[in-house]
């Protein structure tokens, strides 16, 4: 799923604090509206995931299982993408790529925990169910909508509304897409391989605001392309991850793009 962090959500910061109570209610309404808008927009492209998953050789159940349990778009697209290029033999690479793309969810969870699953008044941690449910729907969009709100209660509302709307919508559209993909047959003739590349580009696009990210993207693409002829399918993507570690470790290319 794409990242909306810096663009989609308008935050209401009129600053006027005439009545605090009304402000809070308005903030929560804004959060609900943001969550619904981002949620519905995101859920729609579960169709492309479902279709691509089936085109990669998964059956309808497997596509739906991924959306239910994995439920993090980048990893889902990556898993089926690597399987499409290397088949079951590339399973190890597919798992590793999906898992590495899921690492950012750890950071999102750490940011969201104090907001959406805070300890109770008695100091005991939130219930396992609450933390489990929050973790399940912790993705780019729910985190982004929460962080864009003006106060903690609104952030909580935004997180849950976005997460639940996407969860329900994403699973329904995955099923629809998988059934469509199943009916299509020859996926190359329909351009579904190009659609997969375009989907990855859509996930990457909002992350390219800094020179550093752009440099990593170019470097990783070059490394993956150059190593494709000499490595097993799936491995070039993993090798390209080294570019991120090298640039991130030494903090290279830090000049910010002129704005």
């Amino acid at each position: 799923m794409a990242e909306y962090a810096d663009e989609v959500i308008p935050v209401s910061v009129d600053g006027a604090e005439d009545t605090v109570v009304a402000d809070t209610a308005a903030a929560r309404r804004t959060a609900r509206r943001d969550g619904l808008a981002v949620g519905l927009a995101t859920a729609v492209y579960g169709i492309s995931f479902g279709a691509l998953a089936v085109a990669s050789g998964l059956d309808v159940w497997q596509a739906c299982f991924l959306s239910l349990v994995m439920f993090t778009g980048g990893s889902q697209f990556a898993l089926v993408g690597v399987l499409a290029s290397g088949g079951v033999a590339a399973g190890g690479s597919a798992i590793a790529t999906a898992a590495m793309l899921g690492i950012r969810n750890v950071i999102y969870g750490m940011r969201m925990k104090p907001l959406v699953a805070p300890p109770g008044a008695d100091g005991r941690p939130a219930s396992v169910w609450r933390r489990g449910a929050a973790a399940w729907i912790t993705i780019d969009e729910s985190t982004a909508v929460a962080l864009a709100q003006s106060d903690d209660r609104a952030a909580r509302t935004g997180f849950w509304v976005t997460g639940v709307v996407i969860f329900v919508g994403w699973n329904l559209t995955t099923l629809a897409g998988a059934l469509i993909g199943d009916a299509i047959g020859d996926t190359r003739a329909w351009g579904l391989d190009a659609a997969a590349a375009a989907a990855f580009l859509g996930l990457l696009w909002p992350r390219l605001k800094r020179v550093q990210a752009g440099a990593v993207a170019v470097g990783a693409a070059v490394v993956a392309t150059l190593t494709t002829p000499v490595l097993m399918p799936g491995m070039p993507v993993l090798v390209a991850a080294v570019v991120a570690v090298a640039v991130g470790w030494f903090d290279l290319f830090t000049r910010r793009r002129a704005e």
Binding site: R104, A213, A217, A221, V223, T225, P233, A241, A244, G248
Partner: peptide
């Protein structure tokens, strides 16, 4: 690094998905 990892993996996937045909 975690942030850039996402960028690198997605960019590599774009390259392979756009240019790769097996090996």
């Amino acid at each position: 690094i975690a942030d850039l990892l996402t960028v690198a993996l997605l960019a590599a996937l774009i390259a392979v998905q756009t240019l790769g045909a097996g090996q």
